[in-house]
Each structure stands twice: as structure tokens, then as C-alpha cells.
Design a protein around this nucleic acid. Structure first.
Length: 506
RNA sequence: GGUGCCAUAGCCAAGUGGUAAGGCAGUGGUCUGCAAAACCACCAUUCCCCAGUUCAAAUCUGGGUGGCACCUCCA
């Protein structure tokens, strides 16, 4: 195995990019706060999963052996509430939505986690950590509840920049007077009727919100591991509390060595929220532009930056809103099409005449992987990686168009190399994994459906135009081109006949 | 009130001390019966504003302005 490429990662705790050196050379242990499944996943869930999938794939691409843990929080207030409304068992309900979540993530090329622990099967380590915190004087039991005492953890607030005093001053939560300090938070909650509960030294109850992640990290990655990730919104209080619990139990040098947080998705400049009515489901987006276009769009931005989605309302003739479109996503899909068309051309060329065997390639045809490595090693810079892929695709198209001055085998070899490397770099980002024909056909089908086109009619016009062209009746051929353009169909004459595509930019 | 983040061309978007990647759109060109696609060329003396540090700043410091988020469930 080759030596992994050294990588620099932005650490939320140190607030700067740092040289990353894993606990065990060559191996990386990662924990990501996963979903709390109580409803269908929305695009924000997908973004977080995709960001950390990008980091995971990036590390693998750079030569690391990654252990990736993403939990499912299946014991939670929201799940219990949703289950009460449907009469379903809370664990069954969350299992159902967890499966749906995983199916959605698979559509976006998110790799399944190596380990996917659930809270409900980690009650034992939760109790153990809680007991340990009580023994160490960092937690206290009151009437079947157990609270963590923030006063016992002097560095509380180091991740979020909050201080206990300020939190108290600005607290918007009603203060529970059984707590010693307002910022103290529950590790264990006494059971309420009808809720899932487990026996504990403090009576029947269930875990508080933050302790589960500390327990699952400990169970699967040990007291100390490399990277802990999540959405920016989790910094406070969730991750702050995780640090307090875990380090309170296992010491100041324990727990995550690096914290990574992804930026948020905004729609028309504002965050996505139910009250604003701008929550978009994974399925809705995937059907509108294709799952891979969303993935491509997202990795065209740096994972720490906020991403803004432009939305265009679609109205019918009477002015009634009938849906929305996402111009940015559609632009990303067009760029993705360019890459697939390029791969398709390369594949056709190589299939027809071979890959030219081993040997030298044209200048620049061998640099993509090095460029991708350099970009990804610098805090997983996917946009720069995509730019490098663009250069490679451009060179491939150039060789395809005008390979005249290049020796035959060098040309074949270069194109085969470019195709391979494009796919390898794409794999590091989770894109370009489909067969070009599959992607291209699905895209055309999607656009045909959107415009309500009749493919049989198009084929008829195509045949008619072919006949006109054969007869050199250019006026008729052009009239047919115009007619089809009016339908939104663009014609592409090639030496092997006429192909067509649906215009999507209006 | 407290804590963070962001501001780069018409649009999208990298770049955290060394003299502005990439994409879209646009303009001109090659190719084409004409187109499209592809390719080539052009396209920010300048990075929200002001002051400062430095030989050197989009990048660092201070002060503004505008936007967003967290402190309550939130990806």
C-alpha cells in the first residue's frame, strides 16, 4: 500500500486548517451524527450526508483506510410524538424512516456507513457513561433524572465560543429549578407513561438527547478517535455537550481529535424551515433534475460554505403556481451532461480501436489525479477538483476532435488514460459513476416528460428531415429543424446520423 | 443581549500574505450545406467601504456597512 497523501482539514475547535495526522497512521476513524428518522428526509439531510461522504471518499482516494460510523437516533421526543399520532411503535416508525433515509442517500451516491449504530441498542454504554460521570462528580441524579453539571467541566463552551454566564443571561428556555445550573442538561430522563423506557440505576427511563452520540462513539471507535462531524447547527448545544460528557468521563485528551462541520442550505437567501414552507424533499429534487445533478451541484461548492438555491416558480397559463424549478441545479445538470457526453465519446473511441497499450501520453493527459489529490488534500476542495476534471475533459475532446498531429497509439493511450482518471476523480466526489448511456437516456427522458414531448412524433420528423437532407432539399431540412426547435428539440447532425437533445434552459 | 459565519465579474464559484482557478452567460473564430456539439481566442489593474500592519494584502489588524445562522427542535 502506498503512503497516504498528507491532508489539511479545517478544525472547528481550533478554527483553522490543521495538518491532519490520524491516531493510527494510514487509518481514519470518523463519526457523523446521523438522522433522527421520524419523517421523510429533506435535502438538508442529504447535504450533510453528502458532505461527509465527500470527506470519506476523499480520504479513501488519498490512500487512507477509513472507518465510518453514522448513527441512527431512534429514541427521541420527535419520534415518540410522531408515533403517538399514528399509533405506531416508536422504534418501528423510526426503523421505517431510517430505511427510507438510506434509500434516499443511496440515490445520491452516499456510501453506506461501515457501522450504523442505534440508540436503542446502546442503552448499556449510555448507562455506563452516566454512572461514570456521577462517580466523577460531574453529574447528579434528581427524581429519576440525571443531569450533567456544566460547572464541573471548566472548558465548557470551547467549541461554540459560548460561556456559561452568557448562556444563562440569554437563556430562552424555562429554567427547571431541579437543575443546579440552567445550562445543565439531561443525560437520563425518567420514564413517562407510554414512552419507550429501559431499566437503569435511576429507575425506568430513557437517554437524554446528547449522551447517545458519546456512547456510540465510545462503543465503536473507543475513547479517542479522529474526526467527528455534523451540520453547523449541531455545534451548540449538541456537540458542545458531547465533548463535556465524553471528556468528563474519559479525560481531556479523549474524544474527537478534529471537528468538522458542514455549511447550510439556503433557499433564496433564507434557511429552509417548515414555517417558511421551503422544505424540499429528496425525492422532489431528484425527480426534478436527477439525483446525480444534485450531488454534482453540491460538490461544486465547498462543504463549509453556505449554499443558496435559486427557485423559480412555475405557473400555468392562468397564473396559478404549479411547481418550482431550480435553475442552479439545472445548470449543474448541463455541466454534468458535458462530462458524460465526453466520457461517452472516449468510450466509443477506445472501444473502436483499443487503448493504445502502455507508454507515453500527450502532455497534460497524466495530471488529473495529481491535481485532484492536491485539491482534496487541502480541506477536501471539491470545486477545484471539478475544475481539474474540466481541464481533462477539454483535453479529451480536443484529442477526439483533432488528433491529427498526435501519433495514433499516443492518442489512444491518452484518451484511455483521461477516461480512466476522469472516472477515478469522479469517484472521489461521488459523481460520474453511471454508464454514460444510462445517464444520458434518463436525462432525456426527464426532459421529454417535462416538456410533454411525443418521442414517436420526433422520430417521424427526424426521418422526414433525413430524407430531405438526402435529397439536398436544404430549405425543407431547415424548416424541420426550426419546427423541432419550436418544440424545444435541438438537432445534432453527426457523420453517423442525426442525434437530438431537449433544450432545458428556458 | 451573547456567539459565530459570509460579502470575489452579469450569474455561480475557488483562492487565508506574493501579485485574481474553474463554470455559465456574452463576443469573435475553427468545424458545418446551415446549425448544434466540441475546440480556440477575448472577457475582474481588481476582490463591500474606510484606516492600519507589510517590500508585498482579496488574504492579517481595527472600524464601518449589508446579509445569514446559532443560543429552543433543526442537517
Amino acid at each position: 500500500m502506498t503512503t497516504p497523501t498528507p491532508v489539511r482539514i479545517y478544525d472547528s475547535l481550533q478554527k483553522q486548517k490543521v495538518a491532519f495526522s490520524p491516531l493510527v497512521p494510514g487509518k481514519v476513524s470518523m463519526y457523523l451524527c446521523g438522522p433522527t428518522p421520524y419523517a421523510a428526509a429533506h435535502i438538508g439531510h442529504a447535504y450533510s450526508a453528502i458532505c461527509f461522504d465527500l470527506i470519506r471518499r476523499g480520504l479513501i482516494f488519498l490512500g487512507y483506510d477509513v472507518t465510518f460510523v453514522r448513527n441512527v437516533t431512534d429514541v427521541d421526543d420527535k419520534i415518540i410524538k410522531a408515533a403517538a399520532e399514528t399509533g405506531e411503535d416508536p422504534l418501528a416508525l423510526s426503523a421505517r424512516f431510517a430505511d427510507a433515509y438510506n434509500a434516499d442517500m443511496a440515490r445520491f451516491a452516499v456510501m453506506a456507513p461501515d457501522i450504523e449504530p442505534r440508540v436503542s441498542t446502546h442503552i448499556d454504554p449510555i448507562i455506563k457513561i452516566t454512572e461514570r460521570l456521577i462517580e466523577r462528580g460531574k453529574a447528579y441524579a434528581v427524581d429519576g433524572d440525571v443531569y450533567f453539571s456544566v460547572a464541573s467541566f471548566p472548558t465548557y463552551g470551547k467549541l461554540s465560543g459560548q460561556s456559561i454566564d452568557e448562556l444563562e443571561a440569554g437563556a430562552r428556555i424555562a429554567v427547571d429549578d431541579r437543575k443546579r445550573a440552567p445550562a445543565d442538561f439531561a443525560l437520563w430522563k425518567a420514564a413517562k407513561p407510554g414512552e419507550p423506557s429501559w431499566p437503569s440505576p435511576w429507575g425506568l427511563g430513557r437517554p437524554g438527547w446528547h449522551i447517545e452520540c458519546s456512547a456510540m462513539c465510545w462503543s465503536h471507535l473507543g475513547e479517542t478517535f479522529d474526526i467527528h462531524g455534523g451540520g453547523k447547527d449541531l455545534i451548540f448545544p449538541h456537540h458542545e455537550n458531547e465533548i463535556a460528557q465524553s471528556q468528563g468521563a474519559f479525560g481531556d485528551d479523549s474524544f474527537a481529535r478534529l471537528w468538522v462541520h458542514n455549511g447550510f442550505l439556503n433557499f433564496e437567501g433564507v434557511k429552509m424551515s417548515k414555517s417558511l414552507g421551503n422544505v424540499f424533499g429528496c425525492g422532489e429534487i431528484a425527480n426534478a433534475v436527477g439525483a446525480e445533478a444534485l450531488r454534482f451541484f453540491l460538490v461544486s461548492h465547498h462543504y463549509r460554505s453556505p449554499i443558496d438555491f435559486e427557485i423559480t416558480e412555475v405557473r400555468d397559463a392562468a397564473g396559478t403556481p404549479v411547481g418550482v424549478r431550480f435553475p442552479g441545479l439545472e445548470a449543474a445538470d448541463r455541466r454534468l451532461e458535458y462530462f458524460y457526453v465526453t466520457l461517452d465519446r472516449i468510450d466509443g473511441f477506445v472501444a473502436a480501436g483499443g487503448d493504445g497499450g502502455d507508454g507515453a501520453v500527450v502532455p497534460g493527459a497524466d495530471r488529473l489525479l495529481d491535481d485532484a489529490r492536491a485539491a482534496l488534500a487541502d480541506d477536501f476542495n471539491a470545486p477545484v477538483t471539478i475544475a481539474a476534471m474540466g481541464e481533462a475533459a477539454k483535453l479529451a475532446n480536443k484529442l477526439l476532435d483533432e488528433g491529427k498531429g498526435v501519433a495514433k497509439d499516443v492518442r489512444r493511450r491518452s484518451l484511455a488514460r483521461l477516461g480512466r482518471d476522469l472516472r477515478a476523480a469522479g469517484d472521489a466526489l461521488g459523481v460520474l459513476g453511471q454508464a454514460p448511456a444510462t445517464y444520458l437516456a434518463a436525462r432525456r427522458e426527464r426532459l421529454v416528460a417535462r416538456r410533454g414531448l411525443d418521442v414517436a412524433a420526433i422520430d417521424g420528423l427526424l426521418a422526414e428531415r433525413a430524407a430531405a437532407r438526402a435529397a439536398k432539399d436544404w430549405a425543407r431540412a431547415d424548416a424541420l429543424r426550426d419546427q423541432m426547435a419550436g418544440l424545444g428539440v435541438e438537432l445534432l447532425d453527426t457523420p453517423r446520423g442525426t442525434d437530438w437533445r431537449v433544450k432545458d434552459d428556458e
